[in-house]
């Protein structure tokens, strides 16, 4: 179980809803993932196409919690206005706060992120900021009232996994009480397991499932990986060492001769 602003959740996998080959596959993948929370966005609605209305019906059928994002926002002002619209539209105080610095890397714009988080927390939002492993930004976000931090593992959609593992370990160590969710860059179930083994509370991913050869099977693979990773963390991993250490007892080895011991 882990906590998001006082509410507890069992599944440590949060799933995005974009890029699936069909609405039916999206639905099956969410079910196979056991995710209790899915991310959604807001986009301009065409009076003719009305695409958003059909999508919302599908999400309602899934019966999961939604976490709206502010994807595509490049300034604090845009992100705040988008979050306000999301709160009304999805009837939730949660917002996955994204302020993007650069379209090639999609890295968080940390100054605008802190500014937007401060405004939104003061307005009653429960903010889940998409950030980096930077400790000073994390400090500012926690000071602003964020109880959840969502650092990237690597750039969105890059599937490169935890490219700054040491930085992420440090972030976990410095913020033992915050809920930490790896958001972005996870490409394989093993990478999700690694995040959970480091003590991260959950992972949020989209592309790795939606663009897999079989998204439904991959959703199940990630569900098992996060469970395995969390169990590993709770069990306590052994420390790596430079040299071999025999696991089989040395004592009683047959044909053992004392002159072979150097």
């Amino acid at each position: 179980m882990f906590e998001i602003y006082g509410e507890t959740f069992t599944s440590r996998l949060l799933l995005g809803t974009a890029q699936y080959p069909s609405p039916a596959t999206l639905k099956e993948a969410v079910q196979a993932s056991s995710a209790e929370i899915v991310t959604v966005s807001l986009r301009r609605e065409s009076a003719r196409m009305r695409a958003g209305q059909g999508f919302w019906e599908l999400i309602e059928e899934l019966g999961v919690r939604v976490l709206p994002n502010t994807a595509g926002c490049h300034t604090a002002k845009e992100a705040v206005a988008t979050a306000e619209m999301a709160r009304e539209l999805f009837d939730t105080p949660w917002v996955k706060l994204e302020v993007i610095a650069n379209d090639d890397t999609l890295q968080p714009e940390l100054f605008g992120l802190v500014e937007a988080a401060s405004v939104l927390v003061a307005d009653g939002f429960q903010v889940l900021p998409y950030t980096t492993e930077d400790l000073s930004a994390a400090d500012r976000l926690v000071d602003a009232g964020c109880r959840v931090l969502m650092p990237w593992a690597s750039p969105i959609g890059s599937a490169r996994g935890l490219i700054n593992r040491d930085g992420l370990k440090t972030l976990r160590a410095y913020f033992p009480d915050a809920t930490l969710i790896i958001d972005a860059g996870i490409g394989a179930p093993s990478q999700a397991a690694e995040a959970l083994e480091l003590g991260y509370d959950a992972v949020l991913l989209n592309t790795a499932v939606a663009k897999a050869g079989d998204p439904v099977k991959m959703a199940e693979a990630f569900a098992r990986a996060v469970e395995a990773g969390r169990l590993g963390f709770e069990a306590g991993l052994i420390e790596p060492r430079d040299m071999a250490s025999p696991s089989t007892p040395v004592s009683g080895t047959p044909f053992f001769k004392i002159d072979r011991v150097s």
């Binding site: 995005g16 809803t17 974009a18 890029q19 699936y20 999206l26 991310t39 959604v40 966005s41 807001l42 986009r43 301009r44 609605e45 009305r50 695409a51 958003g52 209305q53 999508f55 919302w56 999400i59 709206p68 994002n69 994807a71 619209m85 539209l89 999805f90 969105i156 989209n206 592309t207």
Partner: peptide, 10 residues
């Protein structure tokens, strides 16, 4: 004027 609706998101 902006008129927005729910959409797929990551």
């Amino acid at each position: 004027v902006e008129i927005l609706a729910p959409r797929q998101g990551g």
